[in-house]
């Protein structure tokens, strides 16, 4: 006896959709890799950009007649402002560098001199521990010195 298959239209629809999506993705990927297709896209983009270029002259003329800045003039203004901002940051960094250098020098001046002679083993260990403590205290007090720019 033959068994009858159960049909759920919604599940079938989902399976159909999945199969269609998969095939469509493959076909479209294949199509987009064809030189003929890319040539058409390239031509369309080229024409659009050419039209954009052609429109620029009358737009510039209109802006000029209205006493308004055109794209190039605005761009130059942006460049100037950007340049100023960068220069200000350069100056800030230089100031920070010199402050760091000053702090580092002050810290070095404050640090106690290292012991000149080597005492007995036990005493040497204590002195090393003191020096380490002193160095770490100095490090915490003084801001980091920083390497210069490239």
């Amino acid at each position: 006896m033959m068994l009858n298959a159960c049909l759920n239209p919604f599940e079938t629809q989902k399976k159909l959709f999945d199969a269609w999506e998969k095939n469509l993705a493959t076909s479209m990927d294949r199509m987009m890799r064809k030189p003929e297709y890319m040539s058409l896209v390239s031509q369309q983009l080229g024409s659009t950009l050419k039209l954009r270029g052609m429109l620029r002259e009358p737009v510039d003329a209109t802006l000029k007649s209205l006493g308004l800045p055109n794209q190039d003039e605005l761009q130059n203004l942006y460049k100037t402002v950007n340049d100023l901002e960068s220069r200000m940051l350069d100056l800030e960094e230089r100031l920070e560098d010199s402050e760091d250098a000053r702090s580092a020098m002050a810290a070095r001046m404050e640090a106690p001199p290292a012991p000149s002679a080597a005492p007995a083993k036990k005493a040497r260990t204590k002195s090393a521990a003191r020096a380490t403590r002193s160095a770490s205290t100095t490090t915490r007090k003084s801001p980091r010195s920083r390497k210069g720019g490239k």
Partner: peptide
């Protein structure tokens, strides 16, 4: 003879919901 598909009424109702 091929089997005729039978509509899964419960499944279809759940899908519609």
């Amino acid at each position: 003879m091929d089997a005729m598909p039978v509509l899964d009424l419960d499944g279809a109702a759940a899908g519609a919901a």
